[in-house]
Nucleic acid binder design. Sequence first.
DNA 1: AACACGTGGTA
DNA 2: TTACCAAGTGT
Length: 345
Amino acid sequence: MAGALPSPDPKRLLAWYDVHKRALPWRVRRDPYRIWLSEVMAQQTTLAAVIPYYQAFLARWPSLADLAAADAEEVLAAWSGLGYYRRARHLHACARIVAQDLGGRFPESVEGLRALPGLGAYSAAAIAAIAFERPTVPVDGNVLRVVARLFAVTKPLAQAKADLAERAQTLRPRRRFGDFAQALMELGALVCTPRAPDCPRCPWAKACRARAQGIADSLPQKSAKKAKPMLQAVAFLLRRADGAVLLRRRPDTGLLAGMLELPSTPWREKPWNLDDALEHAPPGRDWQESAPPFRHVFSHVSVTLRVVAGRPAGRLAGLWAKPGQWGGLALPSLTAKALARSGQS
DNA sequence: AACACGTGGTA
DNA sequence: TTACCAAGTGT
């Protein structure tokens, strides 16, 4: 009974893609720089969030050489709000390597691309296929899900990844490798969705073992996620008479590495009382709560931040910035929220 | 294999 | 409100 299903036909998926593909900005032209930029931005990030950043980067740095010539700091600032900031450093480092060491041209092979900072197995394969028509099937979260369902792989995702990636390669067409890569992801995004897959509209419905078994919506099997520690912190908003606010730079490793923040207490599980918190404050006076506490959720921790505002006691050295300058600074969402909720916009 | 690493949208 | 999740990478 298990052998009664037809094999998934690549041409059938490509025909579906020709009709249903979305008009994404990086599909306007096949340019390795633009494809690379879009792929790095799209890592673990919804396309809706990517598009405005992609447009802004392209407008500001139209070519690889432009981006390579930029300062790392301005790239980080332009990336602000998109998250996973290590990507911005890798992006810039990669631009410089390609511009300076590789003659301004991206490697065209998966292995060559894979050696560049910020490009892992998925991104290297995606760029090789989409920009250079290399015969490879990039495996992202969409593809893992589609393949897990197609072959009814019930093993937990973490243990099945290698198997699923291998099976994905067997789906490869004879031509149109770039389109096929995007078609597979588009299928996962539009039809073979995590919840409530739209099987009746799927070009591969008849080949899908999970659908045949009625278990499509339960695949792939994911393991439970670790609970996030709930941390507490108090941030200090020191505002000068001219409106400038004191910021500081975070350490160059770890969460929000190298990004700017308000001076703050350490983040800990136990709530702070104001007196203890103020031992961590920069020299100031007239401290008072400037907004209700708010929660900000990161990938692996959750922080509840209280913001207290005060006036500087004396002349303080440090990074002072006014509201008008914030667009050019590396402000993560946590800092942006703290400022906005304290009326500093 | 498992974990660190952001953010905002959706149910 | 909680929980899940998105065109993953590096360690």
